[in-house]
């Protein structure tokens, strides 16, 4: 087992699947000769050839549309959006065609769309978003948001195996910052299963992606006063209700944290579910910590204000603890 970055884990996982299954191919903007904007597919074209590592025109509609057709014909395409923000261009192909195909015609659409997402590096309003909640609202799509290198690999393999369209949100801020041991052999992490990142008794934090680490830092700082349990959802659609409710029933207090904006964010769904199904376990109102309802600012200080920081989580946890 080797220590790998989050990015390396994605890259190696993808390569491994392409090596073992000839139906798997990748397509995206500048992913071939250039190796991708973030170099996830560096060296892929040399290894697998231009027919399986396809440089696409600047058309997300074409990328997702062609993947959908190829998947229906029996291939296992893995598309890359250069930035998750650009997936809005492919909305119609993804939401209207791919997500409905199984329901309308009974045919599987086993595509994976990789979505480099998230902010924290002054990418501004077009290169920093976390649009997962928009797609969590669409029946027929699956969504994963790995936080660790090992999950990044295992969830990518599961996503490729799955017969449905899967949106694979990979957080850019984690690419080279997060390193951990990743098994060399092929393995899967099941879709729809959460992971307890940190065990605790007093408060549950439900989060995913890069915010797992923000929550973890806050939990460490409060360690002597407050025992915080962190549930890393890993998948948003389907999401692991049982894991969340089990934890909330233990702690009776919950904070839902996400980098996406607040209104209509996926946190609202989690809060509502806790309220509906575990109301009698609650000792305090369930709290949300999320970005404000604005575009992501360029300015570094403003972006820092925008993205939930450790201090924001600390304040939220203290407020909950004092209730």
């Amino acid at each position: 087992m080797a220590v790998k970055t989050y990015l390396q884990a994605i890259s190696d996982g993808l390569r491994q699947e392409m090596q073992r299954d000839k139906r798997v191919y990748v397509i995206g903007e500048d992913i071939g000769v250039y190796g991708g904007a973030f170099k996830v597919t560096q060296g892929f074209q040399e290894e697998f050839g231009a027919w399986r590592v396809i440089d696409a025109p600047l058309s997300e509609t074409a990328i997702v549309g062609s993947c959908t057709g190829a998947a229906i014909m029996g291939l296992r395409p893995v598309a890359e959006m250069q930035f998750a923000d650009f997936i809005s261009c492919a909305w119609d192909q993804l939401v209207t065609v791919a997500a409905k195909q199984r329901y309308r015609a009974g045919t599987a659409v086993p595509i994976v769309v990789r979505l480099p997402s998230g902010g924290g590096f002054s990418g501004g309003p077009f290169h920093s978003q976390n649009p997962e909640s928009s797609f969590a609202h669409i029946p027929g799509l699956k969504i994963v948001c790995p936080a660790t290198p090992a999950d990044a690999k295992g969830l990518l393999v599961s996503a490729i195996e799955d017969p449905n369209p899967v949106l694979y949100f990979e957080h850019k801020h984690l690419y080279r910052r997060i390193k951990d041991e990743v098994p060399d052999e092929r393995y899967t992490v099941p879709l729809g299963k959460a992971r307890v990142h940190r065990e605790g008794d007093d408060v549950t934090v439900v989060t995913w992606g890069a915010m797992v680490y923000t929550a973890d830092e806050a939990a460490k700082q409060l360690e002597s006063d407050l025992s915080v349990e962190i549930v890393d959802l890993r998948s948003l659609s389907p999401w692991d209700k049982e894991a969340v409710l089990t934890s909330v029933e233990k702690t009776s207090r919950a904070l839902v944290l996400h980098e996406d904006t607040r209104t209509g964010g996926f946190g609202a769904e989690i809060v509502a579910t806790i309220m509906e199904e575990s109301f009698e376990s609650l000792d305090a109102p369930v709290k949300r910590v999320a970005a404000p309802d604005t575009p992501v600012p360029f300015s570094p200080p403003l972006e820092k204000k925008f993205i939930p920081q450790v201090e924001d989580v600390l304040a939220g946890l203290r407020d909950l603890a004092e209730y």
Binding site: S252, E280, S281, D283
Partner: peptide, 16 residues
Amino acid sequence: GDGRGDKAFVSPVVGR
């Protein structure tokens, strides 16, 4: 009794 407003609130789990 006036000052007891907050204490009087019983959360769902405490009530149960």
